[in-house]
Each structure stands twice: as structure tokens, then as C-alpha cells.
Write a protein that binds this DNA or RNA. Structure first.
Lengths: 191, 191
DNA sequence: GAACTAAGTGGACGATGCGTCCGTTTGAAT
DNA sequence: ATTCAAACGGACGCATCGTCCACTTAGTTC
């Protein structure tokens, strides 16, 4: 699930690897419990690890959530490049954006608690994931003849913010309905 | 700038009024300084007021920011009802949404620092202001034959989140460009 | 397998912010 | 002048943060 940082430097020591796994497992458990109050201290305690050990690897709770989320996001990025259309290349841009929205709704539905912890507020725009989505949308815009419309990138990504999605779900809106409306937006904008 | 809570109960005592003014002035000053780190303690100190006094009136920093923002938001709500088209009633829904976007960009540009402090994350959806915007968009959607599309409400409001706007400005995008792209979105979606 | 060493560990610590509690002050009504 | 409820303010207890450093341990060397 978590790769050692490919090849760089000497390999991870055994106790370090053990503790890394413990930390991620503990964090996942806490996030899943819907725990709003996930703190570094609590994660350390749950993992049976000292606070110093935790800080050695991760600077914040958000960073841990991102580490957990990263794998899933990377998979989606892969699919954007290599899946058959409309998610992968080959379909008209409106359809590709619609497919991307659908996939993101699925990801948010499954891992929203992580996204909420890891990509809240200004954090969101500094993650590698956001840059990747932005690049994808930028390309779709260009393909639709909307290059130079830089602001549209963030505008079209805004409804995918974890807190927006969480709010919609709290209002009782179903994932299918959210996806459907996002697809409407995609087709009308890039159609 | 700040009205006494109309008529209800006995009038505010003189020292209370004085301190309320001091607090709001101090807070505005701190928010304007771009201070990321605005805390209740700092506001109290800057206002020359005890912490207990501060908490008596406002439960959190966000609440203070909202109090400062409220007036401006209320003015815009008023204009949505009474201004000439396209901001007020009478224009086609796509045009009205475009006008609303334009007005919001102006508001964000002028008071973004307050919005950022007062409407961050999940807070945003619990403010009265958000409900008001949602109602407005809901009506425009209905007028455009898109009733029952509840998710679209939050989707169309998402790009107005203070952190999205802040991110765009940090990327160097000008207010005019943001407004233009939002208008494009409005026309294509509700056009 | 003993000695060595650098990576890794853990928890005490000082700092900061929160929100409350309660003795004191003050405005205004009588 | 007297009264008293409203308002004040800062000390207090609690939680979290992030650091620091003495100690432990994995892996290497001979």
C-alpha cells in the first residue's frame, strides 16, 4: 500500500517500516470513525508510537491524510491517461470532463473523510493532486477552444472541493444526483 | 455601521456599545493586515478589552468576521431584489446569474479577507448569507427550467468560495478575468 | 557474536490558544 | 445617594502544538 521512496538513499530500517505501517493504519482507523477531532497526539497514541516518531515523518494531520489519499488519486490520474474513452483520451472534451466528474464523485464518496481531512481550505491547492486535476482540465479546455480562460480551471474544479461534496451529502442529495448535475455542467460548458 | 438589535429588550449600555465598536474596529484592522493568525486573544488585546468581554458577544473569530461582513452581504441581497435588471428581477436567468457573479466578485475583491476568515470550510454553509445565495440560485434555476436539480445550486455557488477566489488571485488572475469566466459559465448553464 | 554507529524512538517540555468562571466595576434607574 | 443588574477583565485549567535530546535498536563490520 505504501511504497518506500523509490530507491533513494539507503533502505528503510525495519522498525521504521513497522511504525510507518502502524501510523497509517491507526490514522485510517481514526479518520474512518468519522472522528472530527483527529490530532497528532491521538494518532500517535492509537498507533502506539511516540509523538516525536510521528513528527519525524509527517508534519501534520493533513499530510497523513494526503499520504493515505495519494494512492487512490494516483490511480485516477493513471486512468485519465490510459483508460478507454470517455475517461481516457479520445472522446470530446465535454464528455471527458463529465467522465472525470463521475470518477471524482466516486472517489469522494469512498474517501471523502480523508479528502476532508487532507485538502481543507488553502491546503487543497498546494497538493500535487490539485495540480494534476488542473492540468487535465486545462487540456480539455484547450481542446474545446477555450484556451486563455485560466479562471475556468479553478471554477470547474471548485464543485469537487471535499467540503462542497460533504455539504451536498448532508443535505440528503445522492451521489448519482450530484454526478448527474456535474455532467450537465460539463456538457453545457465544454459541449 | 452596526445597528443595535432592533428594539428588543432594553437598550445597550454605554460601555457595552463603546466596547462593541472597539472590538469591531480592532478586528477589522487585524483582518486587513492580512494577519493569518487572528485569534480571540489578539483581538481582545488590540481592542483593549478583556477576553471575557469579547466572548460575551462573539463566540469565535469567525463570528466576528461574519459580523463585519454581514452588512455588505445584506446590501447585496437587497440589490438582488430591488435593483434594475439584470441584477434585480426582470432579466433572463442566465443574465441574472452572470450579474450576481459579477457583484460577488466585486464583494470578494473588496472584502475577501473577511470572507476568508468568516466562511472557511464547513462554516460557510451555515451562514445565513449562504442560504440567501442558495435561494437566489434556486429561483434562477427554476426559471430556467432546471428545477429538481438541487445539486446544481451548490455547484454553481462553489466557485464563489473565498478560498477558491483567493487561490485564483494568488495565481495572478485578475478580477475581470474571473468575472468573465463566471459569466461564461452562467450563460452556458442557464442560457 | 561482540562492538560499533547512525537511524530511529518516545515522552517531557515550553508555548500558545481556547473557553469559563467569578470577583469587581460601572451605567442608569429610582 | 442608593441600588443592582449588566458589563467587565484577567486568572485559570485544559488541550494541542512542535521541539529537543537522552536512550534504544537495527544493521554493519571484523
Amino acid at each position: 500500500m505504501e511504497l518506500p521512496i523509490a530507491g533513494r538513499g539507503r533502505p528503510e530500517r525495519a522498525d521504521a517500516a513497522r511504525n510507518r505501517a502502524r501510523v497509517l493504519a491507526a490514522a485510517e482507523r481514526l479518520f474512518a470513525e468519522g472522528a472530527e477531532e483527529v490530532t497528532m497526539e491521538r494518532i500517535a497514541a492509537e498507533a502506539g508510537v511516540g509523538k516525536g516518531t510521528l513528527y519525524r515523518r509527517y508534519p501534520s494531520v493533513a499530510a497523513i491524510a494526503q499520504a493515505l489519499l495519494g494512492e487512490h488519486e494516483r490511480q485516477l490520474q493513471e486512468r485519465l491517461l490510459h483508460d478507454p474513452p470517455p475517461l481516457g483520451p479520445g472522446a470530446p472534451p465535454g464528455e471527458r470532463l463529465a467522465a472525470f466528474y463521475r470518477a471524482m464523485v466516486e472517489l469522494l464518496e469512498r474517501h471523502g473523510h480523508l479528502a476532508l481531512a487532507g485538502e481543507t481550505g488553502a491546503q487543497r491547492y498546494r497538493t500535487g493532486a490539485y495540480s494534476a486535476w488542473a492540468l487535465h482540465v486545462r487540456n480539455l479546455l484547450a481542446e474545446a477552444g477555450l484556451e486563455q480562460r485560466d479562471a475556468l480551471i479553478d471554477i470547474l474544479l471548485a464543485p469537487l472541493a471535499p467540503d462542497v461534496y460533504a455539504h451536498q451529502r448532508e443535505r440528503g442529495i445522492e451521489p448519482r444526483a450530484i454526478a448527474a448535475d456535474l455532467e450537465l455542467l460539463a456538457r453545457r460548458t465544454l459541449g
